[in-house]
Every structure is written in structure tokens, then in C-alpha cells.
Simulated assay, not measured.
Amino acid sequence: MLFINLSCTENKGNTGDRVIFQEDFSSELDPNLWVIEMDNQPNSSVRVEDGKLVLDTKGGVTVWLNRELDGDFEITYERTVVMDDGPNDRLSDLNQFWLANDPNIENLFTRSGVFEEYDDLEMYYVGFGGNYNSSTRFRKYKGEGEKPVLQEYDEAPYLLAANKTYRIKTVREGGKVSFWVDDRLFFEYEDPHPIPSGYFGFRSTWSRHEIDYIKITRL
């Protein structure tokens, strides 16, 4: 696990981009870096296992990175929906929140993991393979209970395959946000009222997911 604080150092690539955070899940989650909100359901856990973050839950779960993001950035990670003989194995809900804020209280991390409890946040959301893998949706939550679907798919290749490792990329450039899967553009949105800053969270419900790493780069 590695956290890079830009006030101290920079890790620049060939293009001048800077890695501001990366985590390989080689050790237990640092509670100062990760906040788990998980519905109280049986046979549910969030754990690190064999170098992967595992979300294995009967109900809803959000794992927040406790670092506020602003400016232009790119988030990449690898993620697999596991289908075997586990009690929670279900091909559904490779989801995420990003640039999340609570307009009503300063502390974002006050919820139990139940999906409806997030309705009053301001943020972007992708539900990849939601509703039993029947739809993939992009929403903007407006902080007042409104969360309109801005774009949606209901056919392959925009639905999940079992036990396939996906490379997920999320980009924020100015007022534009985009979501990519294996270098395929799923969603792109030029927001007339961009969210200036907020938090990223892995999101899912009733399924088992393995996340292999995460890297955030300043563009």
C-alpha cells in the first residue's frame, strides 16, 4: 500500500502526469484511508485476501477512499465479479460513486450501506450490470433526492461477464467526466454544473467482487 502526498513529493510519468494515490491491497485496509459502509446482512464481509480487496456481501456496501479529489484526474482499477459457489455470488452491480459530497453535513461517511440512504448526496454514479445484469446506467445525483439517468445500455458488450477481470477507468477533465471499460468508452458527460471536488467509493450489492489495485493520477 502506498499513499503519495503531493505536498511532499510527486511521481511523474512520461507525460508529466502525477500519481497521487495507489493501493495494491497487499496488506489489511488502513482505516485512516478506507471507510466501509456495509448493510448488516448475514454472510457479509469486506476483506483483503490474496492481494485483492474483496466485497462479499448479501446487502449493499460502499468502500470509500478517505481522500477528497479535485482538479483533473484519472482513476484506474481492475475488478472481477466472481461467480462460483459462494453464498453471495450473483452476476450484478459492478458500481462506483465519485466526486461525492453531502450538501447537508460536512462528514460524508454516515451511512449504513443501504442504497437509498445515498439519494441526498451530490455525486456521479455508474451501475455496471445492475438489476441482475440487465442494465448499465450513468447518473448524476443532485443532492436533493434527484438522481436522473443520463445514459443507459441494456445489451452486450455493456453488461457483465462472469469471472472476467475488467480494467475500469474514470476521467475528470474540466467539466467533463467519462467512464471506460477495457478502453471502451461507456459514458461521457459535459456537465454544465460540474462538481468541484468529492470522494470516490467502490459500490455494490448482493454479490462478490475482487478489486486488484487502484491508482489515481493527476492529469
Results as ranks from 00 to 15, higher is better:
27 S>T: 04
206 W>C: 07
159 L>H: 12
73 F>T: 06
111 R>F: 08
52 K>L: 02
209 H>I: 02
76 T>F: 09
22 Q>N: 06
102 D>R: 12
205 T>S: 15
166 Y>V: 01
173 E>D: 01
130 G>H: 07
99 L>Q: 05
187 F>S: 07
174 G>S: 10
116 E>Y: 13
122 E>P: 03
34 W>Y: 10
110 T>Y: 15
121 L>Q: 10
210 E>S: 04
70 D>L: 04
146 E>I: 10
12 K>S: 07
44 S>R: 06
27 S>M: 05
153 Y>E: 03
47 R>D: 00
137 R>K: 14
151 Q>G: 09
18 R>W: 05
22 Q>M: 11
191 D>C: 04
165 T>Y: 07
8 C>M: 13
21 F>W: 09
40 N>G: 05
131 N>R: 00
205 T>R: 12
94 L>R: 04
9 T>F: 12
13 G>N: 15
47 R>I: 03
127 G>R: 11
24 D>K: 14
81 V>C: 11
140 K>E: 11
125 Y>L: 15
169 K>A: 08
200 F>M: 12
111 R>K: 13
177 V>F: 09
106 E>M: 03
99 L>M: 12
81 V>N: 11
125 Y>P: 10
22 Q>K: 14
200 F>N: 13
204 S>I: 00
112 S>C: 03
111 R>M: 05
10 E>T: 14
210 E>Q: 08
108 L>K: 02
60 G>P: 01
134 S>C: 06
156 A>C: 05
186 F>V: 04
43 N>C: 10
88 N>K: 02
200 F>R: 13
